[in-house]
Design a binder for these strands. Structure first.
Lengths: 365, 365
DNA sequence: TTGAAAGCGATACCAG
DNA sequence: CTGGTATCGCTTTCAA
């Protein structure tokens, strides 16, 4: 603000200049003054103390006199002040943010997982920065960079492509959501055992001509569950046929299943890559006029929320998605707080969920 | 660092004191030195210029000499420097973050929507801060506060409870994902017309004893679609029966449908609250041995990805979830950039997706 | 075209 | 117990 008027404008030009000065001075130091925000300074002023003191009460650190504390809290309430997390983060070199990298939230397996992560973090005062990588390394890197630039306190990643850039300098707490022994911290399910389980259950329930839908092998847990199934199948006298899918899309699964039924009409058991493909299989079976589980049994993998809703309700190998998320979050939180962790790798069990696409087993004995 | 050694220690105590001083001085100003990060200063030093200059090339603002520019860029590459978004945000009083508040990502309608938002933002260099409100005002408020404290550049909310706290001082760009005329900016579908559409299609295809599943009326679009359906139904000579659900859970829908079939076995058309409930209905119909669409037609609302996978594939009124998300993000981005917006309210059309739970219409004429 | 310096809001040291 | 102040990494005047 002009503090003194140094001259009286005499003509238009001088007036213009004068106005310019006023405007300039008015704008000084206010390069961005859209929204005013209440700062710790305002609180200090209101309470008649220093910012240091306000900071102390904010963080409940150091000594503050009872009365002072009351004054400060009053000021805080009166002004409706909330501390600026950004300023905090800048100074502390970390934040209350956690980055979550998923292949694709649109894949029905992930929402539950994300929810598990989110619930756990939310309870502990952390927030989620979230991205879909589409298993695209570029995108994944973009997100990790962005997370790092925002000084997230930790990272949870369910993408395959993630650990490749992990080698970089991601030296913040990180937990992976794959089976991944090479990674320092991870939460996963026993996919191979899941595969075995699926095969066993089908065999036990009488299937002898089994088709296995092999998902894209570059997705580790998908490969493992396939391997598990084959391991068991190879050990029986059952015939089996492997169908290699290039994606987990339901179109492809549907199409290939149709072919399967016309090529091998006698197939009496199908182990799908996951629930999504299992449902596609189911649909083709119905279309082909097969009775499920009478003519052909079908078993999925994942146990997405909708699997129990289809008709017939899908039997499947359940991965506890929500729990995986929440365990991962718990682990991460421990790492962030530098609390001791006993289990660096957490393996959650898979379970067979018996519904209506498999036959009821006859009690032996 | 001790710059001068003022005395020579003579005995153990003095040595101890001496060591203490050294340690203290070494630690000075290094309250948190876990991970070193490369700052603009390092780049400046490496390039032999000032930080101001580096900042200029970073932001492509102001004049920078060709050669200087080259030097700086080299330094940046050499050091693999990325600017700290937090520091940036602090100064600029906003960030490259956008807050997304959803009722529950686990509800199959939302992942697609979230993906739409995310894709759009990601392309424009923005990142997503994300929370589930469960339509709980406390939680919603918690998230909005957190978003604000992190200086998000904008907010997208699909929760009912959101606008209540909107009255507060949320003076950053915000777009709502409900039909909400009271809100300044919103993206939504024409739910009422959707409801009408559902009723019309069922009537046109011959249903005369129709049951309408009314979802919880506090969810606006759910209420509207119900109202739309009733509006059409009331205008025909068809009987109809309303079932009030207290939630959109499939258990409740299933249970109530079961009751319905035993109470009114002659019901020949069901308008569900959404696809989730429609699938529950479908399942009960199959269980009850009804043929769909022969005995009873079923129509859903939403068109979730799985709806076409169930058997019989679900006929439904489609809401373009992905598009809603991406439109909302586009609108928000415009607001953030203070670009002119022509449409403050964007209404997206709903469409009838004819699949196999409704009868094929006989061409009239 | 460049650099020095003043912040952005909060924290933590140190001296009182 | 409290206040002054340097600092976090970056942007933006302003003067050179």
């Amino acid at each position: 603000m002009l503090t003194q008027i140094e001259f009286m404008p005499q003509n238009m030009i001088e007036i213009a200049v004068f106005v310019c000065y006023i405007v300039r001075d008015l704008c000084k130091g206010l390069h961005k003054r859209g929204k005013m925000m209440i700062t710790i300074k305002d609180v200090a002023q209101e309470a008649g103390v220093s910012v240091a003191t306000v900071s102390r009460v904010l963080n409940k650190k150091g000594y503050v006199h009872e009365e002072t504390l009351a004054k400060v809290q009053q000021a805080i309430n009166k002004l409706n002040y909330t501390p600026n997390e950004v300023a905090r983060s800048l100074f502390k070199r970390d934040s209350k943010l956690v980055g979550l990298l998923l292949p694709d939230i649109t894949n029905p397996f992930f929402p539950e997982l994300a929810r598990g992560v989110e619930d756990e973090l939310q309870q502990q005062g952390f927030r989620l920065l979230f991205g879909n990588s589409d298993e695209n390394p570029e995108k994944a890197k973009g997100y990790v960079d962005a997370f790092l630039q925002n000084q997230v306190a930790g990272l949870i990643s369910a993408t395959q492509t993630f650990h490749e850039l992990n080698g970089q300098s991601v030296n913040i707490p990180t937990v992976a959501l794959d089976r991944a022994h090479e990674k320092p911290y991870a939460v996963y399910t026993d996919s191979k055992e899941g595969g075995r389980m699926a095969a066993r259950e089908l065999i036990q329930r009488g299937s002898r001509k089994i088709a296995v839908l092999k998902g894209p092998s570059h997705i580790l847990p998908v490969l493992e569950r396939f391997l598990g199934a084959v391991e068991v199948l190879a050990d029986t006298e059952a015939d089996f046929h492997v169908i290699s899918l290039t994606s987990l899309s339901d179109e492809e699964a549907g199409k290939r299943t149709k072919e399967l039924f016309s090529q091998f009409p006698s197939v009496d058991g199908i182990i799908a890559s996951n629930d999504m493909t299992a449902i596609a299989v189911l649909r083709e079976a119905m279309r082909a006029g097969k009775s499920v589980p009478g003519d052909v049994q079908v078993i999925g993998f994942d146990d997405m929320p909708l699997s129990r809703l289809v008709f017939p309700a899908l039997s499947t190998i359940r991965q506890p998605a929500y729990e995986m998320g929440s365990k991962a979050a718990q682990l991460l939180l421990k790492l962030i707080r530098k609390e001791p962790v006993t289990e660096k790798h957490i393996q959650l069990p898979v379970t067979f969920i018996e519904r209506d696409t498999t036959r009821k087993v006859k009690r032996d004995g």
